[in-house]
Amino acid sequence: MTDLKKIFHVKGNDFTHAGEASVNIKNMLKSIGLDPKLIRRIGVCGYEGEMNMVMHGGDGTLSIEINTDKIILYLDDNGPGIEDLELAMKEGYSTAKDEYREMGFGAGMGLPNMKKNADEFTISSKVGRGTQVKMVFSLNH
């Protein structure tokens, strides 16, 4: 049963507001009294995903679903898609532009960081269509 679902819109190339959705999610989870370590993991996954979307994905959404036994984050964008998923998951591999690197992003750590912090991580992508990521965080630890 889903207790709560919230959808945040993420705008491509908008670095002023990039990360706002994840900060909102973090504050929301704080207010319901979740374990700070779990909040941090969820916040990092949301933020890395949000930044990926702003840098590569064009417009999209970051959604959170809160259930009694788990929390799920969904990223859904209509960007260019990822040609080689296996390569994209490798630490250090990045296709980010230099201007993003100057802002401290594009180190090729986003997707590996997300996978590391989520209990379940699934990604699907189609070139020309976009990318979807689902990250599950168990509440039964």
Partner: peptide
């Protein structure tokens, strides 16, 4: 983004 990183990483 340095401040937002600080926020999400706590």
């Amino acid at each position: 983004q340095a401040v937002r990183t600080a926020l999400v990483a706590d």
